[in-house]
Design a protein around this nucleic acid. Sequence first.
DNA 1: CGGGAGGCTGAACACGTGTTTAGTCTGGTG
DNA 2: CACCAGACTAAACACGTGTTCAGCCTCCCG
Lengths: 237, 237
Amino acid sequence: MFSLVSMSSTDGASTPTRDRIRDAAVLRFARSGFGTSVRTIAADAGVSPALVIHHFGSKDALHRECDEHVLAGIVESKRQNMGRATDGQLLQVLAESDEHAPLLGYVMRSLQAGGDVARAFVQHMVDDARVYTREAVADGIARPSVDEDARARYLVLSSLGTLSLALTLHPPEDAEDLGATLRTFMAEHYLPMIEMFAQGFLTSRRMLDDYLLYLSDPPADGEPDDAPATETPSEEP
Amino acid sequence: MFSLVSMSSTDGASTPTRDRIRDAAVLRFARSGFGTSVRTIAADAGVSPALVIHHFGSKDALHRECDEHVLAGIVESKRQNMGRATDGQLLQVLAESDEHAPLLGYVMRSLQAGGDVARAFVQHMVDDARVYTREAVADGIARPSVDEDARARYLVLSSLGTLSLALTLHPPEDAEDLGATLRTFMAEHYLPMIEMFAQGFLTSRRMLDDYLLYLSDPPADGEPDDAPATETPSEEP
DNA sequence: CGGGAGGCTGAACACGTGTTTAGTCTGGTG
DNA sequence: CACCAGACTAAACACGTGTTCAGCCTCCCG
């Protein structure tokens, strides 16, 4: 009646074949997206399509279980590499690892598709970013922010969003080698990124101060046309 | 033999019904993504599925024609609003316009799906950003960059990527009202964004200078482990 | 040894898709 | 008027999908 070993999260005990199917699914989903057919996954695992459904109940259930498995793997990786790298470098480290690269690929797919893994992964990185920025500020390396939480969110969203969009616009010919892909991306964008981090974009704080002033004042939401920035010179969307 | 009025780009003369189908398709694609079925689009246009194929040949051809139409619309919008807004504000202006909002929605979908419209749209914005940043630098408003082109690319990719990812993670309940969606996004991210623009993140230029030095030196690609940033405190991926 | 539970499969089913086909209607031209 | 090109449709087709069904084979327990 009751399963003695409550293996993973939802249900589904761990069987060699079952695990093989799940692993094949994670790999396939990462490589070809979540539109991949059950038949393809079954072929990858060397198994009949019916067996996939037999073990997981449905394709959606398989998808969910892949999500959980990948998320658990990410958490585990973070624990393993704790201290070795700080967040940003985390991606590099994971991408180079043969074991964990597929997980990262899966996460990148999820970032494009949305859903719980994506949100959870981003939340993890935001939490980490909060810690790291706090330390950096305390060490005098980073400037303090008016809203540290918002900044942590923005930093993560901006980094991952830039990467995701760049990958979508120019998909690497070898999607397997995430490490190489990341290096290519960095080769093109590291300079402007670090430039922005080191010296910003504007020469004066005026726009920032104006906005802070605007925030402290009653924004008076009666008028529809009360945009805070009228003379912005640049491209924040 | 020859069509006297070479209407649009590829072929396909302009017929009321044809245009209605195309417009319905653009709207549907923007609202529900490119996986939408021909039958749905046909229903939206009040027409039989067969007629859609009769006019466009195939769903892919319809998709391509929507791409061209949207891109032309964007260019036209930019021409209309020339001077009214500078790039960043462009999105706001377009999103508020009842006529052009669907086009923007379509573009956002394309940014997630990749493809030519996405690349073309980004390229347009990059070209604009180059001009605007150049002016801003000349006016002493913006700091100069070591690589202005790379910075323009990064600024656009970063802005659009952040927006796209934010929308993917937290889809607005009313996807129709792009203006409200954009305002919500800005309300959350404008502060950290402008903070970054105004004062950067780091307190010193050291990491930047180190990287510039690293760039000028022979990078010596024999060694696999030659990451430029070893003691970075933060979250560039 | 007997037998049943469960991993596993090939074939089929139900359904949604893009597309085709045959045919109807209608407006303009000889 | 005759007629024909073209807009338009209902029905069907071919196909890929997720899923189910009936049955096989094997291992384990009584």
